[in-house]
Amino acid sequence: MDGEVVWRIGERIVRGAAGSVTGNHYDRNYDVVHLDPDRSLAIVADGMGAGEGSAAAGRLAVETFARECGGPSPAALRAAVDQVHFAVRQEARTLRGLTGCTLTALTAAPDGSVRIVQLGDSRAYRLRAGLLELLTVDHTLAWLGLIHGWYAATDARAHADGYRLTRYAGHPDHPDPDVLDVPLRAGDRLLLCTDGVSGQLDYETLTRLLAAPTPVPALLDATLTAGGHDNATALVLTVT
């Protein structure tokens, strides 16, 4: 476990926990997770590729977003992401292999809901009354291909296009992130995770483990049991 926090968001108490495992494929962990103890801010990033550039992209993106996130308004969140783009691109000039990273972050909104800002394919889910919902979309060619019917999910092209991100932190075109409002209800569980979790655990497993008394270690252990083919990071928020 990388940390646990307790926040008050509107009338709700939100308890957060996060953790990450390297898995069996890579010799180091290129995921980065931040769970702020002093304010309601949670961030997950996943470096693209492997090597020092991948690690630096995720680390720099998380550090920059945490520093530049000056408020929960959509404009402020987009401005913080723009600073992330700039910082990662600047670093790319001096560090070989730096390409970019996913970025999925959550912060409290003034009305007691939360706002999620996202680039890439690190996902956000909500478990409510036994129903697990995917709140975000994957910014990949595979997602577009499946939505538009270019091929079936089992097609080899879908697997290959899953690695081709259409939006990410550090993209030369500085694409805008998705920003969405998520109301909170007592009993909700929110999950932010990298594709090492969502790509290795099926819907039924995610639903069952997210409902467990200690979901973070359960989810991470399950990714290792599934083969540990990728770094895996899970950040869970429980609403009461």
Rank of each mutant, 00 (worst) to 15 (best):
L141W: 12
A169F: 11
L191G: 04
L165P: 07
D173I: 09
R128Y: 12
L131I: 13
P183I: 09
S122V: 07
P172I: 00
H171M: 09
W143H: 14
L141A: 04
G170V: 03
P172A: 01
L144C: 11
L190I: 05
A129I: 01
G149I: 02
H148Y: 14
Y125F: 04
L184I: 01
R123L: 06
L134T: 12
L141I: 01
R157A: 13
H139C: 08
C193I: 13
L131N: 10
A153P: 09
G187V: 04
I147T: 15
A156R: 14
A156E: 15
A169H: 12
R167L: 08
A153S: 13
D176F: 10
V182H: 08
R189T: 05
G130L: 14
T166Q: 08
R167W: 07
D155V: 04
D121Q: 05
Y168I: 03
S122N: 02
L191M: 09
G162V: 10
P177K: 00
D121E: 09
Y168D: 00
G170H: 03
G130C: 13
L191P: 04
R167Q: 14
Y151S: 13
P183Y: 06
C193H: 07
Y125I: 00
D138I: 03
A152I: 08
A186P: 15
H171S: 11
C193K: 09
Y151K: 12
D178V: 05
A158R: 02
A142K: 11
D181W: 08
L146F: 01
E133M: 11
H139N: 11
A156S: 15
P175E: 03
P177D: 00
D176G: 12
H159K: 15
A160P: 03
G170L: 06
V179D: 00
A156I: 12
L132M: 01
H139S: 06
V179K: 00
A169M: 12
L180K: 06
Y163V: 08
A142V: 10
A160M: 13
T154A: 15
G145V: 06
H171F: 05
G145R: 00
R164V: 15
R189C: 02
V137I: 13
D161N: 14
L184P: 08
G145E: 04
G162D: 04
D173L: 15
R164I: 14
L184W: 01
A158F: 05
S122T: 09
R126D: 08
P172R: 01
T140V: 00
H139G: 02
E133P: 02
G149M: 06
L134H: 06
T166W: 07
I147Q: 15
G162K: 04
D161I: 07
L127K: 00
P172F: 01
L135D: 06
A129C: 11
A186H: 13
C193D: 10
A169E: 07
R164Y: 08
A186Q: 12
Y151A: 13
W143N: 08
D138T: 03
A186E: 15
R126S: 09
L184H: 09
D188Q: 04
D178S: 07
Y125M: 01
H174E: 15
